[in-house]
């Protein structure tokens, strides 16, 4: 009944990021003011979402090479947890945008890209639920998952960098990496990213284990 070390590490890192993120000194910038601290909470959502989707992709590819049904279940759990985290990222981003850019939704390539990505992944779940046969469902959704991941990278990783974006690090804007993200912020930001990735994987793992329990119950 022992808790795995990485789950405890995830809790400790996120707790650290909450306390240090609110109290540590941050660069004093116009418009952003104290909201620069959202970097520790909003941006980490997207980082962990991308990592969860990557893990889901890996499980899908491994499903296609082994046809092991459990891998398909893992891919689904990871993708749905990633979607949940993306929803949190989108909502927090909207609040942040309202008070720094002046509107809940602005015509920014990164925002629209994130919206497209979420619709693509919504389609993944609709596709899953629309196929009755288990093997076909697993195979088709694994292939679709590969496509969805590629589209996600294009829409939130590549396209925003090719045009002007309000997000730092894209288009003509200077990135946080250049001078805004000073060493103090890195000390909180990177642990926060790792912590949220670990927490996200934990939640995904729980939902996977519950699914396995349900299947075992049906078979008995």
């Amino acid at each position: 009944m022992k808790l795995k070390w990485w789950k405890i590490l995830g809790i400790v890192l996120v707790l650290y990021s909450i306390i240090a993120g609110l109290l540590m000194p941050v660069p004093k910038l116009n418009i952003l003011n104290e909201t620069i601290r959202n970097l520790y909470f909003h941006v980490t959502m997207w980082f962990s979402m991308i990592v969860l989707m990557l893990m889901s992709l890996i499980q899908s590819i491994r499903y296609l090479s082994s046809f092991d049904k459990l891998r398909d279940l893992k891919a689904e759990s990871l993708a749905s947890t990633g979607m949940f985290i993306a929803t949190l990222g989108l909502t927090t981003g909207m609040v942040w945008a309202q008070f720094t850019w002046g509107a809940f939704w602005v015509n920014d390539p990164k925002l629209n890209g994130a919206a497209v990505t979420m619709l693509i992944y919504l389609a993944y779940f609709i596709l899953r639920n629309s196929i009755e046969n288990e093997d076909t469902r697993a195979r088709v959704s694994a292939i679709y998952n590969i496509l969805a991941f590629v589209i996600m990278i294009v829409f939130i990783g590549i396209l925003p960098r090719m045009t002007d974006s309000l997000h730092p690090g894209n288009g003509g804007n200077p990135g946080f990496g250049n001078y805004d993200l000073d060493s103090n912020m890195r000390m909180v930001f990177y642990p926060a990213v790792i912590g949220w990735i670990l927490l996200g994987s934990w939640i995904a793992q729980l939902s996977y284990r519950i699914k396995v329990l349900e299947i075992n119950k049906e078979n008995n």
Partner: peptide, 21 residues
């Protein structure tokens, strides 16, 4: 505020640990 957010987070995590168990 920091204390309250920390308490909320710890509470949620305890809940998650219980589900895990």
């Amino acid at each position: 505020v920091v204390a309250i957010i920390a308490i909320l987070f710890i509470g949620l995590m305890i809940y998650l640990i219980r589900i895990d168990k």
